[in-house]
Design a protein around this nucleic acid. Structure first.
Length: 299
DNA sequence: CTCCAGGGAGCCT
DNA sequence: AGGCTCCATGGA
């Protein structure tokens, strides 16, 4: 086991590791205290998070001056990619529109970065997300990983990787329902089979213009426009997607009523025109802020 | 008890 | 294309 640190002096822009890992972009990091998503926002928390980076188990935490890590080998390169510790992300955060509640979100969570997670785990995670609370998506992703993923040891603790496509494709619908997926079980199985067989994969999306990529992504079972936006934003590094979920739809009604339209595609265009040069980053800040604004006010 | 959650598929017009 | 209805499950 090696230990090390990434100095925050080497990270362009601010970093809020907790906000980044607990804002519903990725469901594959688990806080060592077991309270991921569940204890409100103990701001500035420095708990360890366990996850898998490039196939190896990693524990990370943020301190005043660094991201500390424990892993079998140096995970720095993978972390920089996954957590977007690059200067471009700093630029994007610096370009948030000067309007409310966007600036309130920036003030509260500056350092929240939009992640770049691997494609398949993100795809399945957001297929699961339909009509489910953020906390429960995390629980189900962990349950799937424990049952179908590879087990790794990290300091005596078992960390499970997300299942390979073939592993989920081989599961029966009944097995997946037993895990708790409900009506999403066949969606997960069929989409995993498409990826496992190569019938439809990330390479079919990369290189396409944003709207064409979103349309193509809906070819997966259980993936509509909203889930497609999440996958393009949190995995494939598209800057445009503004996933129109219940929270953002509510924000449009109360803060950007002029952007409301009858269809997803038209509302998407209208809100993107108001969310600055990197609409997906704006959306991620607003989503996280709206979900925690009450807790912030009671501090 | 009812209501709702980071929606989507299937079917209807 | 746009509008229903149904879909599991757990927490408030």
């Amino acid at each position: 086991m090696e230990t090390g640190a990434i100095s925050l002096e080497d990270v362009p822009g601010a970093l809020d590791l907790q906000a980044t890992l607990e804002s519903g972009q990725t469901f594959r990091w688990t806080r060592a205290d077991g309270e991921t998503y569940r204890s409100g926002l103990p701001r500035g928390g420095t708990e360890w998070y366990r996850g898998i980076v490039d196939g190896t188990p990693v524990a990370i935490r943020q301190t005043d001056a660094a991201i500390e890590w424990r892993a079998p080998e140096d995970p720095t390169a993978g972390l920089v990619r996954r957590l977007r510790l690059d200067p471009e992300m700093a630029t994007m955060i610096g370009s948030l529109p000067d309007q409310e509640p966007i600036q309130a979100a920036r003030r509260a969570f500056e350092g929240l970065r939009v992640v770049a997670e691997p494609f398949f785990p993100t795809l399945i995670s957001f297929v699961l997300s339909a009509q489910m609370r953020v906390e429960r998506i995390h629980d189900l992703v962990q349950a799937l990983s424990r049952r179908y993923g590879t087990a790794h040891d990290l300091d005596g603790t078992t960390v499970h990787g997300f299942p390979e496509p073939a592993a989920l494709a081989a599961a029966t619908e009944e097995d997946l329902r037993d895990v708790g997926l409900g009506y999403r079980a066949p969606y997960v199985r069929e989409t995993a089979a498409m990826v496992a067989s190569g019938d439809r994969t990330a390479t079919d999306l990369l290189g396409l213009d944003y709207e064409a990529a979103r349309e193509a992504a809906t070819g997966f079972v259980g993936v509509g426009e909203k889930v497609a936006d999440c996958v393009l934003l949190f995995s494939l590094r598209y800057a445009e997607p503004v996933p129109l979920d219940t929270w953002i739809t509510g924000a449009i009604e109360s803060h950007f009523p002029a952007a409301a339209r009858d269809t997803y595609a038209e509302t998407s265009r209208a809100i993107r025109a108001r969310f600055g040069p990197y609409p997906g980053v704006t959306q991620t800040y607003v989503f996280h802020y709206l979900r925690h604004r009450e807790a912030l006010q009671t501090e």
